[in-house]
Simulated assay, not measured.
Amino acid sequence: MKKEIMEIKRIREEKYLTLADEQREALRQTMFDKDLETYNRPTDNVHQAMLEITLARKREIAKKYGWPCDF
């Protein structure tokens, strides 16, 4: 009986860790998609006062992923 309880606990812990890994990966993918969208958004219509902030954010994203950045 004790072995069965230990096995159930082990299986539950494995499932919990797998779920946590899947959630972490989903969050990472969501952040990547959001960063990619921000990085690829054109700056033609950005107000001059906000342009430097927008470009700084794009530079941060480029540095984070090792993407080329010439602005």
Rank of each mutant, 00 (worst) to 15 (best):
M1E: 08
M1K: 14
K2C: 04
K2Y: 06
K3L: 05
K3N: 11
K3Q: 13
K3F: 03
E4Q: 15
I5D: 01
I8Y: 10
R10H: 15
I11G: 02
R12G: 08
K15S: 13
Y16P: 03
L17D: 02
T18L: 14
A20N: 10
E22H: 08
E22R: 05
Q23Y: 05
A26C: 10
R28V: 14
T30E: 13
M31F: 11
M31N: 14
M31L: 14
D33N: 12
D33V: 03
K34A: 14
D35G: 08
D35S: 10
D35P: 06
L36C: 15
L36G: 13
L36M: 15
L36W: 15
E37Q: 15
E37T: 14
R41Y: 06
P42D: 03
T43N: 00
T43H: 01
T43Q: 07
T43F: 00
V46R: 03
H47C: 11
Q48I: 13
Q48K: 10
A49P: 00
A49F: 04
L51W: 03
L51E: 04
E52M: 13
I53H: 08
I53F: 03
L55S: 09
L55A: 10
A56R: 13
R57P: 01
K58L: 05
K58C: 02
K58F: 09
R59T: 00
E60V: 09
E60F: 05
I61V: 07
A62Y: 01
G66M: 09
W67K: 04
W67T: 00
P68A: 00
P68R: 06
C69G: 04
F71K: 13
F71L: 04
